[in-house]
Structure formats: structure tokens, C-alpha cells
Design a binder for these strands. Structure first.
Length: 109
DNA sequence: AACCTGACGACGC
DNA sequence: GGCGTCGCCAGGT
């Protein structure tokens, strides 16, 4: 069992119209400090992959960037907007509204 | 095995 | 809430 295997498996659980953070993915796997590994794994994912890599962002609700990632930050944003996800004037996403809730948790009281 | 790098995250100011 | 610094683990050389 490879770490990426778990990561990909979980990322594919993210429904369209919702986004998850690297930390969340890792956290759900029981690896809260493997947040980086999550992004590192997605880094190897291809654009035509069955994995919704575009539904994964950082805890700041922003799209990260890489020197040699597959596609561009615009590519990711384009896909997210196509799913109904809204962006702030600062290019951020409200995780409180579009944040993935696999547990169906409530947003507090 | 050690060092450096890397789609990140939490804490302090 | 934004910016800067340290920590975390895995991969490549």
C-alpha cells in the first residue's frame, strides 16, 4: 500500500462542487502532518486522470502554484468555476461554503 | 545514510 | 486577517 494510493483514493471521493484542503485529505487518512505529501502526490497526477486534482487546494482556500505542475493555476480555477464554485475578489474560495464535508458535519451550533 | 527540495500547515506578531 | 518563520515527511541525488 503506497501513500499515494490512499491519497488518490480519497481525492476521488470529493464530489463536484466541493473542494478539500491538502491537510484535510491527509487528516482524513489519519496523517495530519502529511499535508505536503498530498499535494506532492497530486503533483504526479495527469490532467486526464480520473482524479479530481482540481478539487484540492490549500488551507488558505487559494490555489497553489508550482514551477512545473500539470497545467496552470488558471486551469484549476477554470475547472472549479465550471462546477459552480465561486471565487473571492482575492481569488480565494470559502471553505465554509464549498468545503468538502465527508462526515456531514455541521458548521457549528 | 545525509543533505536539499517541495501543489503545506500552524503559530506568533 | 496578512506576513514571516519553523516543522513535518517523503523523494531524488
Amino acid at each position: 500500500m503506497n501513500l499515494r494510493q490512499d491519497i488518490y483514493q480519497l481525492v476521488r471521493q470529493i464530489p463536484p462542487g466541493s473542494v478539500a484542503t491538502y491537510g484535510q485529505i491527509a487528516h482524513l487518512l489519519g496523517l495530519p502532518n502529511h499535508a505536503r505529501q498530498v499535494g506532492y502526490a497530486l503533483y504526479q497526477v495527469a490532467l486526464d486522470s480520473d482524479i479530481p486534482w482540481h478539487r484540492v487546494i490549500n488551507a488558505q482556500g487559494k490555489i497553489s502554484t508550482a514551477p512545473q505542475r500539470h497545467g496552470t493555476d488558471e486551469q484549476q480555477r477554470w475547472r472549479l468555476e465550471a462546477e459552480g464554485i465561486e471565487f473571492d475578489p482575492q481569488g480565494r474560495i470559502d471553505l465554509k461554503r464549498f468545503g468538502w464535508r465527508p462526515l456531514g458535519e455541521k458548521h457549528g451550533g
